[in-house]
Every structure is written in C-alpha cells, then in structure tokens.
C-alpha cells in the first residue's frame, strides 16, 4: 500500500481467501480462482497455502507432489523456521514454480509463450508442528498471541513484498481459525474473498469473521470483501438464506457468482497425478462457466474498487 498525496492507493495484490467457518470452500475457491484467472486473464498467480491441512496444495500438486515439494525444501513451514531463527524474510526459495494442471497454460509455456501461470508456496502437515513449536517458544519469552501474529505479519510482509513484482496476484488460502499464522495472513492481505455456504451456521461464521477482521485487521473490510456462496443446493431453504445474506446481512459486500454443488468440482480438485494435465474444459466440465464467471466477477470487483491496472481477457 503506498500513498499518493493524501489519497491511499491500495493494491489488490494480496488476496486472502478466508472464513472462520471450516469447510465452506476456501481451498476450492482458491484453486478455481487461480485456474480461472490464469486461464482467462493470463495472470501470473502465486497460491500460498497457510493451512496445515494443505488442501489447496494437494488440489494443485497432488499429495505426492506436496511431499515431493517438502523434500525439495519447499513450503510455508520454512517461513516459520526462518522467522524463528531471525533470518532475513524471503519466500522465493520455498516456492514450487510450477503448480499448473491446465493443458493450455502448459502448452503455451512449452512454446515459450507463457500466458497465465500458477506457482505455489505449498503447505505441508509439518506446518502444524512448526507453528506449535513457534508458539511454545514465543510464549515462553512472555510473548502473546497478538505480538506473535504482529511479528509474523511483518515477516510475511517483507517476504511477500519481494514477490509482488513477480506475480499479478498472490492468493492466500487461510485456515478456518485465528491462529497466529492465519492472523498474520489476514493482516498482510489487501482484499478478502469470503466463501460461505447458504445455511445458518455458515452465515454465523461469516458474520463472526466480518466483525473480527473489521475490528482487528481492516476497518474498511466491507469495501474490500468479495463473497462467494459455494456448494449451493438449489432448495427453498438455500435460496432464502442466500437472499438474506445478499440483501440484508452482507448487503454492502460484493457478491461473486453462486457456485453450485457438483461432483465435477470434486473430480476437478482431485488431480490424477502430478504429471497430469487437462484442458480447462476437461477439468471443469459443466462447471467451467461458473469458474469463468468467478474470475470475471472478481476482476470486475477489483476494477470497481480501482485497486489495480486492468486485467483483460486472453482466452474465452
């Protein structure tokens, strides 16, 4: 974020995909956005997995790929080690430069015509242990969760600022709670993508998220939020709940498309192997229109808020 006179120019470069509620589609939305922004808008996207469940990393790289990445010294847990040992903040060495599964992106790359790309700073289950160890260490030195979150956020800020010139967008897949790590992720984000389900408990989780982040991280959160209703089953109940979310409780938030519940999403997120590629059409099948609109709406949202130079379509 830099200033131009008194006017704040915000950048939409770091996007946190977050909600306090678990299982609302954060990781799935992260991967769909990455694929669709890379495919349709030719963007160079970095996916950072801050969740020790490593779901978006698995979706992008497969589980074997997650382990292979870790063996090559890649992964978000190394950022914690770096922080703990007081080393200079640097994320570049921990990034898997290829997390692409879309054939069209790979084919263009082969012809040295890169047009849209995805890299990943993956998570590994080790992240959970490393975060615990960090907490033990920090609290034994009379630190608090808040000071730890703040110090980690500064570390991330430094680590990611070197990356900003290299990527169009950095997507942070956040875990469903407020650990120091996830708080640090929220603190460095410019924009929030908030997936939610159209049911009462998810509305509740979303409300909690909005009020906590609004009070503790971003006062202008409402203006920076893009919500997506996911796994939508077209029932009366779901339609009512969605209507309330969009027209009453979260009426000031930008809503992206409603993503239907579909088996196609499950198969799209289950990459057959780390060397498997599929066309965008093949990967998303009958969901491809929804995934395209997700990126289109997100880009509209970013433009409307004037955070960024314009992104233009490179593929239909």
């Amino acid at each position: 974020m830099n200033t131009d006179g008194n006017r704040l120019i915000m950048s939409a470069n770091i996007v946190a995909i977050a909600n306090l509620k678990g299982g609302v589609g954060k990781s799935t939305t992260t991967v769909m956005l990455a694929d669709s922004l890379a495919y349709h808008f030719g963007l160079n996207v970095l996916v950072v997995d801050l969740d020790a469940q490593a779901n978006s990393s698995q979706m992008l790289l497969t589980e074997q790929g997650v382990h292979a990445a870790s063996e090559q010294g890649k992964g978000t847990h190394h950022l914690l080690g770096q922080f703990l040992e007081g080393r200079k903040a640097m994320a570049g060495p921990f990034i898997m430069p290829n997390a692409v599964s879309i054939e069209e992106l790979r084919a263009a790359e082969m012809k040295s015509e890169r047009l849209g790309w995805i890299s990943a700073l993956p998570a590994h289950p080790q992240l959970r242990m490393d975060e615990l160890a960090l907490e033990e260490e920090w609290y034994s030195r009379t630190g608090t969760p808040t000071t730890l979150s703040e110090a980690l956020a500064r570390h991330f800020q430094n680590a990611f600022s070197d990356l900003l010139p290299l990527y169009d967008l950095i997507l942070l897949d956040c875990p469903p709670h407020l650990s120091p790590l996830s708080r640090a992720g929220l603190a460095v984000a410019d924009v929030f993508v908030i997936p939610t389900l159209a049911d009462a408990v998810s509305s509740w989780g979303t409300k909690q998220f909005m009020s906590w982040v609004g009070e503790n991280v971003r006062a202008d959160l409402v203006n920076r939020s893009f919500s997506v209703i996911t796994r939508f089953k077209n029932t009366n109940y779901a339609r009512q709940t969605r209507s309330e979310l969009q027209n009453v409780y979260l009426k000031d938030i930008w809503f992206g498309p409603t993503i239907p519940e579909s088996v196609q999403v499950l198969t799209a997120m289950d990459r057959p192997a780390a060397d498997s590629y599929d066309t965008f059409r093949g990967k998303y099948g009958k969901m491809r229109g929804d995934v395209r609109v997700l990126a289109e709406e997100f880009v509209k949202f970013v433009h409307a808020r004037k955070w960024n130079e314009s992104f233009t379509k490179v593929r239909t």
């Binding site: 054939e103 289950d270 057959p272 192997a273 498997s276 590629y277 599929d278 066309t279 093949g282 990967k283």
Partner: peptide, 8 residues
C-alpha cells in the same frame, strides 16, 4: 476413476 484426463 479420475486417474487420467483425455490429454494424458
């Protein structure tokens, strides 16, 4: 069984 795409 989602073990290979048409491309693969």
């Amino acid at each position: 069984h989602n073990l290979a795409s048409a491309v693969d």
